[in-house]
Computed example of a mutant assay.
Amino acid sequence: MRVVIAGAGAVGRSVARELLENGHDVLLIDKSPQAVSVVRVPEAEWLLADACEITTLDEAALERCQVVIAASGDDKVNLVVSLLAKTEYGVPRVVARVNHPNNEWLFNDSWGVDVAVSTPRLMSALVEEAVSVGDLVRLMKFSQGDANLMELTLPEGAALVGTRVGEVAWPQDTALVTIIRGSRVLIPDPDDALAAGDELLFVTAPAREPELRALLFPSSED
């Protein structure tokens, strides 16, 4: 897979290294000479140019890319890169970094964004996930399809402990995608019985979150 990353700061370089280790082809673009440091990621291609310019994206051959990642520290730049990648080059998958939480509402398909990654919100969610047992935590929002990734660690005495997955009437537009049990990652089976300490990962439509919360916490009020 060919991936172009706009923004060669710490975030862009880290993503590039991960993708390269997984066997993908990566091109890093940045207009700052200080950021373009080939020795930091020698396996990647590098381009010293402004990713908001059509000529730059032509040179980067975005029409041959499967994924574009707008990873700069400037939300305006990330939005422009996303819009150009999607509308001018038809890139199938556009992932954009959100630097300021107040700008999250802009990062949607209107600006060509398939997946928006809000660094501050993601860090906050991961902190909540690490310390919360018995609370439903929103880990990530998927811009395309309007769905959220939710997490719950089942506490002792929870209503669903001991219930088989297939016996639970999950809300519409909601899927239990993974059960993390200790060091094991389980694909949910209808015969699996839920246990205290299970970490449940759901993908659900935002409108269904109250129903999911009511199912998980039947004694609580919305």
Score class of each variant (00 low, 15 high):
166 G>T: 04
137 V>A: 05
34 Q>D: 14
64 R>T: 10
105 W>P: 00
157 G>V: 00
69 I>A: 11
9 G>V: 03
144 Q>V: 09
98 V>H: 07
89 Y>H: 01
46 W>A: 01
77 V>Y: 01
171 P>M: 01
27 L>C: 09
37 S>R: 07
222 D>F: 04
165 V>T: 04
14 S>A: 15
205 A>Q: 13
157 G>T: 00
183 S>R: 15
81 V>A: 04
136 L>G: 02
55 T>I: 05
67 V>F: 14
154 L>F: 00
54 I>S: 12
191 D>S: 14
127 V>I: 10
6 A>H: 09
160 L>M: 02
188 P>N: 04
57 L>N: 11
156 E>M: 00
157 G>C: 00
195 A>Y: 01
130 A>F: 03
181 R>E: 14
3 V>A: 06
9 G>F: 05
150 M>D: 04
96 A>N: 09
59 E>V: 08
94 V>M: 09
147 A>G: 14
200 L>K: 10
203 V>L: 14
170 W>Y: 06
207 A>E: 12
34 Q>E: 10
215 L>F: 02
40 R>N: 13
59 E>R: 14
162 G>T: 03
124 S>Y: 08
209 E>N: 05
136 L>C: 03
203 V>K: 15
43 E>G: 03
103 N>Q: 13
37 S>D: 08
130 A>E: 05
51 A>R: 08
192 D>A: 07
215 L>T: 01
15 V>Y: 15
118 S>E: 04
166 G>V: 08
150 M>C: 10
56 T>I: 05
159 A>G: 02
122 L>G: 01
130 A>I: 01
28 L>C: 02
206 P>L: 10
127 V>H: 08
167 E>W: 00
146 D>V: 02
17 R>F: 03
179 I>G: 03
21 E>Q: 15
6 A>W: 09
187 I>R: 11
25 D>E: 13
185 V>P: 11
88 E>G: 00
184 R>N: 15
164 R>W: 07
145 G>T: 13
13 R>G: 06
12 G>H: 09
149 L>R: 10
150 M>P: 04
193 A>Q: 13
44 A>V: 05
29 I>D: 05
61 A>Y: 09
110 S>M: 14
142 F>A: 15
96 A>C: 10
211 E>Q: 08
11 V>F: 15
175 A>N: 04
26 V>F: 13
66 Q>H: 13
208 R>E: 06
10 A>H: 13
200 L>Q: 07
143 S>M: 13
74 D>G: 01
25 D>N: 05
126 L>F: 14
186 L>Y: 12
180 I>D: 10
186 L>I: 15
168 V>G: 04
12 G>W: 11
26 V>L: 11
203 V>P: 11
136 L>V: 01
221 E>H: 08
165 V>Y: 06
90 G>C: 08
41 V>L: 12
79 L>D: 12
200 L>S: 04
66 Q>N: 11
3 V>Y: 10
75 D>I: 13
121 R>D: 12
170 W>C: 06
37 S>G: 00
221 E>Q: 06
173 D>R: 08
149 L>H: 10
123 M>K: 13
